[in-house]
Design a protein around this nucleic acid. Structure first.
Length: 561
RNA sequence: UGGGGAGUCGCCAAGUGGUAAGGCACUGGAUUUUGAUUCCAGCAUACGUAGGUUCGAUCCCUACCUCCCCAGCCA
């Protein structure tokens, strides 16, 4: 059991009960079964964390199994990316890397067995005819004229299918169950189809491929999975899962239990594979790992840590109720992690010049900034101060609104880790835009000296010496959609794209940030958490992505919320 | 109008016959050289609706309402 208090959920209750009755001899074995036909997204993270997390908590193991039964859509590229994502999230499948295609021989042998038992038959109808005879939600289907084909004849045909004697679609193998079942999945489902396609792992060895419903349950059983977790839409596939394994009782090692949970829905994003593909292919985002995307590659590049994602999945829990999680919950989990782990640095995103009129022209002074406010053991670094500085434009208001306590004409603030300054003048250009502001400083108030505590000012702003500041590309990301439910109804989700979801700026950084390693995260004080882009950063020349802003209670007040 | 699921605080989510956990959000207040963090306090007479059983119901029964999933030779 993990050290953190684990909240009970319906899946754990089932396992606890199984352990109590000894159903599996205290064994817990799960699996994460992606189809390698696309990139993983944050919704998959729920399944990954659930499967690996439960196995870990119950001293069991979790397999990574690629459900690769449809070579038409699958590719090695996806297998590699998925492995990388799962490992990145912090999970280890050890020796349990499996593929459904590992079981093609056994799957085939079981199919022959089903035929000999009169539980499956070769169908001669076309796909269209099968559809027509399947019936509807409210009316039963009708039996195929080939349903009572003799087992020997079916077996013969099936062997010829395997031998490549027929073109795609000519025949299909169907389970013989019940065409009148109110559950559509039980109306003699197709379990094998002919596909003369090269498979990324088995090559041209096969030209018939098994279907999901037939493959998944048997793969689970062969791997001795105990609890087979999947999402809600497979709930009415469970009778079929159980039917197949019931026919094979004694021939497979066990009969795993399928348990369904609600999939993750996140606001302000889309999760479906189709829409993700569309966004990428129509260049609405940069690529699969665009930091605005909910793909795991995307959130990683955005700056999300594996720990923050695991925390998120733990926080949202698991149940069978359809639910929408607000993306702010995800963002909070990142803040929680990075608040602890990210060193503090100074960066000016939108610079405004501040000149200290009474500061000596050539003087440079060292100011000492702690690397983390709560961790003195992390030490301090030197930030040089001089006469001309950059501050954030937001930290000055010529006509301050009520409650604003940063810089404005006549007002005093502390230059963080430096002196208290007072605004004495504003420079404007010909069209009235503010170009610089002038301050005087109180030489008695330097941080770290005795005088620092004599006077208190409420405002506290960050700054950088102009001559020391380093320009760098910084990408400010925001939510990809401006509608919390871009997917809902019949509106086109592409119409609710947020036009301001990506802004590229040249910001100024303190010197030490130039040494940032790719994927190193920092808190830019009073701004947010930023990560050195893992792709575009060059030695000595980092590019930063804003992963998430700091919480900002003033922003809410200011916006009149 | 067939079948399978779900409805507990703004968002998640426990509890399942004995009088509503927890988290997040939110609201106060304290601390703070990040309007951050941290801390402390508050936050469902109420469990989709209506009946019924019971000393007692979110939990059992009945009816109803709402939402989700299913008619791929996809997974």
């Amino acid at each position: 059991m993990p050290t953190d208090a684990v909240v009970s959920n319906f899946i754990r209750s089932i396992i606890d009960e199984d352990n109590r009755t000894g159903k599996w001899n205290q064994r817990v074995e799960t699996r994460f079964p992606p189809e390698p036909n696309g990139y993983l997204h944050i919704g998959h993270a729920k399944s990954i964390c659930l499967n690996f997390g439960i196995a870990h908590d119950y001293n069991g193991v979790c397999h990574l199994r690629f459900d690769d039964t449809n070579p038409e859509k699958e590719a090695q590229e996806y297998v590699d990316a998925i492995c990388e994502n799962v490992a990145w999230l912090g999970f280890d499948w050890g020796e349990h890397l499996h593929y459904s295609s590992d079981y093609f021989d056994q799957l085939y042998a079981f199919a022959e067995y089903l035929i000999t038992q009169g539980k499956a038959y070769v169908e001669s109808l076309t796909a269209d005819e099968i559809r027509e005879q399947r019936g509807t939600l409210t009316s039963p289907g009708q039996n195929s004229p080939y349903r009572d084909r003799l087992p020997d004849e079916s077996l013969d045909l099936f062997r010829c299918m395997k031998a490549g004697e027929f073109p795609d679609g000519k025949y299909v193998l169907r389970a013989k169950i019940d065409m009148a079942s109110p559950n559509m999945n039980m109306r003699d489902p197709v379990i094998y189809r002919i596909r003369h396609i090269h498979h990324q792992r088995t090559g041209d060895q096969w030209c018939i491929y098994p279907m999901y419903d037939y493959t998944h349950c048997i793969s689970d059983a062969l791997e001795k999975i105990t609890h087979s977790l999947c999402t809600l839409e497979f709930e009415d596939h469970r009778p079929l899962y159980d039917w197949v394994l019931d026919q094979l009782e004694g021939k497979v090692p066990c009969h795993p239990q399928q348990i369904e949970f609600a999939r993750l829905n996140l606001t302000y994003t889309v999760m479906s594979k189709r829409k993700l593909i569309e966004l990428v292919e129509s260049d609405l985002v940069d690529d699969w790992d665009d930091p605005r995307l909910s793909t795991l590659a995307g959130v990683r590049r955005r700056g999300y840590t594996p720990k923050s994602i695991r925390q998120f999945i733990e926080r949202i829990g698991v149940s069978k109720a359809d639910s929408w999680i607000d993306v702010s919950v995800l963002e909070d989990c990142l803040r929680e992690d990075l608040n602890e782990s990210a060193p503090r640095r100074v960066a000016i995103l939108r610079p405004l010049k501040l000149i200290i009129d009474n500061y000596p022209e050539d003087l440079e002074e060292d100011c000492f900034a702690p690397n983390h406010p709560k961790k003195p053991e992390w030490g301090k670094r030197v930030v040089p101060l001089s006469k001309t500085l950059y501050i954030e434009r937001d930290d000055f208001m010529e006509e301050p609104t009520k409650g604003y306590f940063r810089l404005s004409p006549g007002a005093e603030v502390r230059l963080r880790y430096g002196y208290i300054v007072k605004c004495v003048a504003v420079d404007k250009n010909a069209v009235g835009e503010i170009e610089a502001i002038h301050c005087t400083y109180d030489a008695e108030t330097k941080s770290g000296t005795e005088g620092a505590t004599k006077r208190k000012v409420k405002g506290n702003i960050h700054w950088l010496s102009v001559k020391h500041a380093q320009p760098a590309e910084v990408r400010l990301y925001d939510r990809l959609f401006s509608d919390p439910y871009p997917d809902s109804g019949d509106k086109d989700y592409k119409t609710s794209l947020n036009p301001d979801s990506k802004e590229i700026i040249t910001a100024y950084l303190e010197q030490s940030l130039c040494d940032a390693e790719p994927e190193q995260a920092f808190q830019f004080e009073r701004n947010g958490y930023f990560i050195a882009d893992r792709i575009d950063s060059k030695p000595g020349k980092p590019v930063f992505n804003r992963a998430v802003t700091l919480r900002d209670s003033w922003g809410k007040v200011d916006a009149g919320v």
